[in-house]
Design a protein around this nucleic acid. Structure first.
Lengths: 153, 153
DNA sequence: GGAACATCATTGCAGGTGCAATGGCTATTT
DNA sequence: AAATAGCCATTGCACCTGCAATGATGTTCC
C-alpha cells in the first residue's frame, strides 16, 4: 500500500459531482443543445451563436451589435464574429447607422428571412418535444430556471 | 419602408428565444459555472475540465481515462488533455496498467491531494449558496434536471 | 497461432473562444 | 474648439475544442 500516495494523507471531504448544480446544468445544457447544434450545422450550416443572432434579428428587425449583446447573453465579440460569418453567407446585411456612425445596423436579407422561415418551426417542434418528454417535470424545471436566471441576472 | 428587405416578405412565425429551453439551460449553465471557473483559474490555476478530472480522482482513486470519460460527461480527448496539463502541473501522476497496457492509471499526487483539500470545501460552500439563493425553487430545479438528465441519458 | 477486428489513449489540424488591445466615432469638459 | 474621456465594433493572439486519424495493445474467430 506504500505505492499509493494518497493512502497516508488525511481523507478528502466527500463531494458528489453529480449533485453539484453547476455540473448538472452544464451537462443538461450540453445534451439539449448538441443535437440542435448538429441539425443547424448539417442542414443549415450555422452555429449556435449565429442562430442566436438570427433569432434576434428575426423578431427585432434592425439592431446593433450592442443590442444583441445585451439581449442574447453573448459577448460583443461573439456577436461581431457571428455577424461576420452570417454576412459572408449572405444571410444578413450590415450598414452604418447614420445617426451614430459608431453603431452598425444588422438585418436579415431575404435569404436569411427564408432560412428562418424554415428553422423556426423546427425549433418550435423541438421545444414541444422537450416539454412532452419531461411531462410535469417541465414546469418544475421552468420554475427553477426562472428563479436561477432572475437571481444571477 | 422599401429599404427594409423583410417588409414585403411573409411574417416569420413568433419565436421567443427566452422561452426556449436549450437557450435557458445554456445561459443558466454559463452563469453558474463562470464565477466558479474564474475562481478555480485565479486561485488554483485549473480549468473546469481539469477540475472534473480531479474530483473524479479524489473519490475514485486510481482510474483510467476511459473510466473518467464514462462517468464525468467528458469526451476522452478532453480527459486526456486535462490529464496532460494536470500532470505537467504536478497534480496527478500517470502510470501504465500492467494488467492491460492500453490502459493508464491516473491518481492524485500529494500536491493534488492538498489542492483538493482546499477546493472541495469551497465547492461545497458554493453549492450551499446556490441552494440558499434559490430557496424552494432549488427542489424544483433539481426535479426538472433529474428528469431531463434521465431522459437524455 | 495468426489475421482481422476492437479498444484505449493520444495528437494534428482546423476552427472556435476569451481576453486585451485597437481604431473610429461621439460626448464632455474647460 | 481643443483636449480628454468614453463608447462601439472589430481583431491579434494565445489557448481551447471537436473531429478524425494514428499507434499501440488486446480480443475474437477461423
Amino acid at each position: 500500500m506504500t505505492d499509493t500516495p494518497s493512502t497516508d494523507l488525511p481523507p478528502l471531504p466527500e463531494f458528489d459531482l453529480f449533485a453539484f448544480t453547476p455540473y448538472r446544468l452544464a451537462v443538461a445544457a450540453k445534451r439539449t443543445s448538441d443535437e440542435l447544434a448538429r441539425q443547424y450545422r448539417d442542414r443549415f450550416g450555422i452555429t449556435i451563436p449565429e442562430w442566436r443572432v438570427m433569432v434576434h434579428l428575426a423578431h427585432s428587425g434592425k439592431v446593433s451589435v450592442r443590442d444583441i449583446e445585451a439581449r442574447v447573453a453573448m459577448e460583443k465579440y461573439e456577436v461581431s464574429r457571428a455577424a461576420k460569418r452570417l454576412r459572408e453567407a449572405g444571410l444578413i446585411e450590415r450598414r452604418e447607422n447614420p445617426e451614430d456612425r459608431r453603431l452598425v445596423i444588422l438585418a436579415l436579407t431575404p435569404e436569411g428571412h427564408a432560412l428562418m422561415a424554415r428553422i423556426l418551426p423546427m425549433a418550435r417542434a423541438h421545444q414541444a418535444q422537450i416539454e412532452e418528454r419531461l411531462g410535469p417535470a417541465f414546469a418544475q424545471l421552468e420554475a427553477g430556471l426562472a428563479k436561477l436566471l432572475a437571481e444571477t441576472d
